Amino acid sequence: MAIRDLIPWKSQGQDIAPRQEERVDHPVMSLHRDINRLFDDMFRGFSMPSLPSIGRSIGWPRVELSENAKEVRVTAELPGMEEKDIEISLDDHELVIRGEKKSDTNDEERGYSERRYGRFERRIGLPSQIDEEKVEAAFRNGVLTITVPRTAEATKGRKTFPINAG
Score class of each variant (00 low, 15 high):
Ala2Glu: 07
Arg4Glu: 14
Asp5Trp: 07
Leu6Val: 04
Ile7Val: 14
Gln14Glu: 13
Asp15Met: 12
Ile16Glu: 09
Gln20Ser: 05
Glu22Cys: 01
Arg23Asp: 05
Val24Thr: 13
Val24Lys: 15
Asp25Ser: 10
His26Val: 01
Leu31Gly: 05
His32Cys: 13
Arg33Ala: 10
Asp34Leu: 11
Asp34Ala: 12
Ile35Arg: 02
Asn36Met: 09
Asn36Ile: 07
Leu38Asn: 08
Asp40Gly: 11
Asp40Tyr: 01
Phe43Glu: 06
Phe46Tyr: 14
Phe46Lys: 02
Ser47Ile: 01
Ser50Glu: 11
Leu51Asn: 08
Pro52Ile: 03
Pro52Ala: 05
Ser53Arg: 10
Pro61Leu: 09
Arg62Tyr: 06
Val63His: 01
Val63Cys: 01
Glu64Ala: 09
Ser66Trp: 05
Glu67Trp: 09
Asn68Glu: 08
Val72Pro: 02
Arg73Pro: 00
Val74Tyr: 00
Leu78Tyr: 06
Gly80Cys: 08
Lys84Cys: 01
Asp85Gln: 15
Asp85Pro: 00
Ile86Glu: 07
Ile88Ala: 02
Ser89Arg: 15
Leu90Pro: 03
Asp91Thr: 07
Asp92Tyr: 08
Leu95Cys: 02
Gly99Ser: 06
Gly99Trp: 05
Glu100Ile: 05
Asp104Ile: 04
Thr105Ser: 03
Thr105Met: 06
Glu108Gln: 05
Glu108Tyr: 02
Gly111Phe: 04
Tyr112Ala: 05
Glu114Met: 11
Glu114Leu: 13
Glu114Pro: 00
Glu114Ile: 01
Tyr117Asp: 15
Tyr117His: 14
Phe120Tyr: 08
Glu121Arg: 13
Ile124Gly: 03
Leu126Ala: 10
Pro127Ser: 13
Gln129Glu: 11
Asp131Thr: 02
Asp131Cys: 02
Glu132Met: 07
Glu132Trp: 09
Glu136Asn: 07
Asn141Ser: 12
Thr145Ile: 07
Ile146Tyr: 04
Thr147Glu: 09
Thr147Ser: 09
Val148Met: 05
Pro149Asp: 13
Arg150Tyr: 03
Arg150Phe: 01
Thr151Asn: 03
Ala152Leu: 11
Ala154Asp: 04
Lys156Ser: 10
Lys156Met: 09
Lys156Gln: 15
Arg158Tyr: 00
Lys159Arg: 15
Phe161Glu: 14
Pro162Asn: 11
Ile163Asn: 06
Ala165Met: 10
Ala165Val: 13
Gly166Lys: 12
Gly166Phe: 11
Gly166Ser: 10
